[in-house]
Design a protein around this nucleic acid. Structure first.
Length: 192
DNA sequence: GCAGGGATATTCT
DNA sequence: GAATATCCCTGCC
């Protein structure tokens, strides 16, 4: 038995965010399976992180962030797009990793149809949700046995991780909590 | 190739 | 009323 995916999420959110790079995210909706390999994520904390939705405490929207490691947090942004996060840490201590980018590996035709285009299928948080058919219905479900599954990639080796400021964030911009794996999963699998 | 703008839920002032 | 963890199309260099 290999290390549980859940083990990656139980520590601090920055460690968890880095550990999620290279993992696979899979949905199966209407009989269509779609999978991406994560290559861009961002960490968000709780009451100590002014950029986090949980900074000012619990609201109806961010309730899933308090539900403990392995919970999926999906919210609507700018009134039109969905963003998916994977909650880390123990229940009651809000923290989550925003899924910002991935490389499509299965179900590419399905993603192309859902996205209405053949390029840039999953290189942004809103795009991922559209490509994988993730909506608010999945908010609060488990990434272990819910509609969206998080699994490790068996053949992933060592790869470089770059750190940079989080995108679109003003408060807390000094934290380099955006993590990318620019050269690990690209070329042969990425569509250009 | 880059700048600007529109759509508009949720939260905060 | 304003800001935001976004995306895509348009128009001009």
């Amino acid at each position: 038995m290999t290390r549980s995916v859940l083990d990656r999420l139980e520590g601090d959110v920055v460690t968890a965010a880095k550990a999620l790079l290279g993992c696979r995210l899979t949905t199966r909706v209407d009989g269509h399976e779609t999978t991406i390999v994560l290559d861009e994520v961002e960490a968000y904390g709780g009451s100590d992180d002014p950029a986090s939705h949980a900074y000012r405490g619990r609201t109806p929207r961010n309730a899933a962030m308090f539900a403990g490691a392995g919970t999926l947090y999906v919210y609507r942004i700018y009134g039109m797009h969905w963003c998916a996060n994977i909650v880390t840490g123990p229940p009651g201590t809000p923290a989550a990793v925003l899924i910002r980018g991935g490389v499509p590996i299965t179900g590419i035709e399905t993603m192309t149809r859902r996205r209405g285009r053949a390029t840039n299928l999953a290189d942004g948080p809103g795009k991922i949700c559209e490509a994988l058919a993730i909506t608010g219905e999945a908010d609060g479900t488990s990434v272990l046995d819910g509609p969206l599954r998080l699994t490790e990639r068996a053949d992933v080796g060592a790869f470089r991780i770059e750190e940079s400021p989080r995108i679109g964030v003003r408060a807390g911009a000094d934290r380099l909590w955006r993590f990318t794996a620019p050269d690990a999963f690209g070329s042969s699998l990425a569509t250009t």
